[in-house]
Design a protein around this nucleic acid. Structure first.
Length: 414
RNA sequence: GCGGGUGUAGCUCAGUUGGUUAGAGCGCCAGGUUGUGGUCCUGGAUGUCGUCGGUUCGAAUCCGAUCACUCGCCCCA
């Protein structure tokens, strides 16, 4: 196939069969979010590069090698690699600190220049939420439990585990970072190459290294929970107690860290083992420092994002679309189109072919999944009637045209 | 960015030690039935064998490059 006719690497077309699952995931997520009082926000899919570079962390992988950045005139712009930075920017731009607390839901495409794999694309879609302005750990409980309820609503409860950890407050993090470096430094040469680099730049990330030797070393390392300030410990205890009170199963994973710099306190991940190397399906955490750091009023926040493609892959089948009624005109096709027009105006989904003999049209009706076929023949037309055929049972009967709409409407509401 | 695997019809795949017009199933189209679908029967169409180059009398088959997909690493949704 010519290069021109191929989609760009890591991008995919979503055909109707795909969008059915895709929309089901998005719509379910939003329906659940609405029950928690969220409104939808739509921010641009590109921002000034600074918006991402400053907030995600200059050393994060996303910023250093995964951004789609381009220049227009003087401006450096970047296709959004994730949603939180843009929402935070919109919060500041629109002066929304007047409306706190604020609950925002978003959905849409994200872009990361990574090597594609199963469950990883260069353009992918996320649904996500941000809850701004509440410092209480109860906000964390609500946000995490909402993620769980959403996965439950998608029927994925049995395929997913929740892991949770705390990154503590600033003091806890500094203390822990020092303790960790002090422990690892003497073993620097036994660490993997990547981890040696991380030791200087972002030692916390060594914790979730997949290198076997690293894992052995890390197994004995000090854990975050040892270094928590009393306040940070109390915060985390309330979060876990809250989840327990709501009956949400989770495991505390002290090795869980997040790749982006803006997280503090609660970090969590919903994972599955059904997607190969890409186990994370929904993840997030608290980011109290983010908005202040971007130049806005100091505002606490917590949120999560979920990968729509990954969730779609876990989904068995999306709910089937509404079954249409098929119109099969034998003679006057325009009269049939007019009838279709009246039925559609009444809210009935009508499929009508424009060519072919009766056999072809009936086959088309069956393929469209139609429940009924309305056959418009000359004989019936003369009597002001149509033939209504039940395509499931094969039974058919002549029906006066004025009774048709009533019958179909009654059927539909069954 | 690094390493492994794979590219043949719309889809899933066969194709022998290199040998004429490259196959199957499903799907699609047509007919059996010009007013009756889902079953059945009959017939039909469809390929730059991913692309470019090389070896050879001859390449889907061997070699090289390239592109894409895929699995893993890194990292993440």
């Amino acid at each position: 196939m010519s290069t021109l006719l191929q989609p760009v690497r890591g991008t995919h077309d979503l055909l109707p069969e795909d969008t059915r699952r895709h929309r089901h995931v998005e719509d379910t997520a939003f329906a659940v979010a609405r029950r928690y009082g969220y409104g939808e926000v739509v921010t641009p899919i590109f921002e000034f590069t600074e918006v991402f570079a400053r907030t995600l962390g200059e050393t994060s992988d996303v910023v250093t090698k995964e951004m789609y950045t381009f220049t227009m005139g003087e401006d450096s712009l970047t296709l959004r690699p994730e949603g939180t930075a843009g929402v935070a920017r919109a919060f500041i731009s629109n002066g929304l600190s007047q409306s706190l607390p604020l609950k925002l839901f978003y959905r849409g495409p994200m872009f990361r220049h990574e090597r594609p794999q199963k469950g990883r694309q260069r353009q992918f879609h996320q649904v996500g939420i941000e809850f701004l302005g509440v410092e209480s750990p109860l906000a964390d409980v609500e946000v995490v439990s909402m993620g769980w309820r959403m996965l439950e609503a998608l029927g994925l409860k049995g395929k997913i585990q929740l892991e949770i950890n705390t990154l503590g407050d600033l003091d806890s993090r500094t203390a822990y970072r020092n303790a960790l470096v002090a422990y690892l430094e003497p073993m620097r040469l036994t660490l993997s190459e990547e981890s040696r680099a991380r030791l200087d730049k972002n030692p916390l990330r060594i914790l979730d290294s997949k290198d076997e030797e690293d894992r052995r070393i890390v197994a004995q390392a000090p854990v975050m929970t040892d270094c928590l300030t009393p306040a940070a410990r109390e915060f985390f205890d309330q979060v876990t107690a809250g989840l327990t009170a709501l009956g949400i199963p989770f495991t505390v994973n002290p090795k869980l860290v997040r790749g982006l710099d803006y997280y503090c306190h609660t970090a969590f991940e919903f994972t599955t083992d059904a997607l190969g190397a890409q186990g994370t399906v929904l993840a997030g955490g608290r980011y109290d420092g983010l908005i202040g750091q971007m130049g806005g009023p100091a505002t606490p926040g917590i949120g999560w994002a979920a990968g729509v493609e990954r969730l779609s892959m876990l989904l068995g089948e999306a709910p089937p679309p509404e079954r249409p009624v098929a119109l099969v005109p034998m003679g006057d096709a325009m009269a049939a189109l007019a009838l279709a027009d009246r039925l559609r105006a009444a809210g009935i989904s009508v499929d009508m072919g424009f060519s072919g003999n009766m056999k072809k049209r009936m086959a088309r009706a069956a393929k469209a999944g139609a429940r009924f076929a309305i056959i418009l023949g000359e004989d019936e037309a003369a009597r002001g009637a149509v033939t209504l055929r039940d395509l499931d049972s094969g039974e058919q009967a002549e029906v006066a045209e004025e009774r048709l709409l009533g019958l179909l409407t009654a059927q539909k509401s069954e």
